[in-house]
Simulated assay, not measured.
Amino acid sequence: MERGGVVMVCDDTEQIRRLIRLNLELEGYDVLEAADGQELLDSLAGSAELPGVITLDAQMAPRDGWWAIAQIRADERLRHIPVVMVTASVQQHDRVQAQSSGLDAFVPKPFDPDKLVEVVGGLMARGRGQAPSA
């Protein structure tokens, strides 16, 4: 599969952002970063080029991933972007919330970086609602 495109990585833990970024960059992706949902939305609002995929952590402050996905799906300009929730929140209610919120994939932490790259690549190639969850 040919790699490439822009991925926005949103996580409040710098080490997690770095891990995801390095693995995606090794596969040819350009990576943008945000530390919480508000920073993500602010960054996208001012951007002429939108990412092909967004990865989100669920638990961030002050604006978490659940808030961010609701904002993304409500925004005509952003709603087409596939979103992967990468989170330690893996209870059944989290998976139900993930499905009902319009997420395209759910990857539990700790995650296999190769699997995350595979999920991102599938979403990048096929678009919203087409890639399986990890």
Rank of each mutant, 00 (worst) to 15 (best):
M1G: 02
G5K: 00
V6L: 15
V6C: 11
M8A: 14
M8R: 06
M8D: 06
V9D: 05
V9G: 03
C10I: 15
D11E: 11
D12G: 02
D12E: 03
D12H: 08
I16D: 12
I16P: 10
R21G: 07
R21K: 14
L22A: 12
L22K: 13
L22T: 15
N23D: 15
N23W: 13
L24E: 08
L24N: 11
E27W: 05
E27S: 05
G28E: 04
G28L: 02
Y29Q: 01
Y29V: 02
D30H: 10
D30S: 12
D30L: 13
V31H: 06
V31R: 08
V31I: 13
V31Q: 11
V31Y: 12
V31L: 08
A34N: 06
A35C: 14
D36V: 10
D36T: 09
G37N: 10
G37D: 12
G37T: 11
E39S: 15
L40R: 05
L44A: 02
A45M: 10
A45G: 12
G46N: 09
G46R: 13
G46D: 11
G46W: 12
E49Q: 15
L50F: 11
G52M: 12
I54F: 14
A58W: 06
A58Y: 13
Q59P: 04
Q59N: 09
Q59L: 11
A61R: 14
P62K: 12
P62E: 10
G65E: 00
W67P: 00
A68I: 00
I69K: 00
A70V: 01
D75W: 00
D75T: 01
E76I: 05
L78H: 01
I81S: 06
P82V: 09
V84A: 14
V86D: 08
A88R: 04
S89H: 03
S89Q: 04
V90R: 01
Q91H: 04
Q92I: 04
H93N: 10
H93E: 15
D94R: 09
R95F: 03
S100M: 15
L103H: 11
L103E: 08
D104C: 07
D104G: 06
D104Q: 14
D104M: 09
A105Q: 09
F106P: 01
V107W: 09
P108A: 12
P108N: 06
P108W: 05
K109S: 03
P110E: 04
P110F: 00
F111Y: 05
F111V: 01
D112T: 05
D112V: 05
K115V: 06
V117M: 07
V120P: 02
G121D: 01
G122S: 02
G122N: 00
R126P: 06
G127L: 02
R128Q: 04
G129I: 07
S133R: 07
A134W: 01
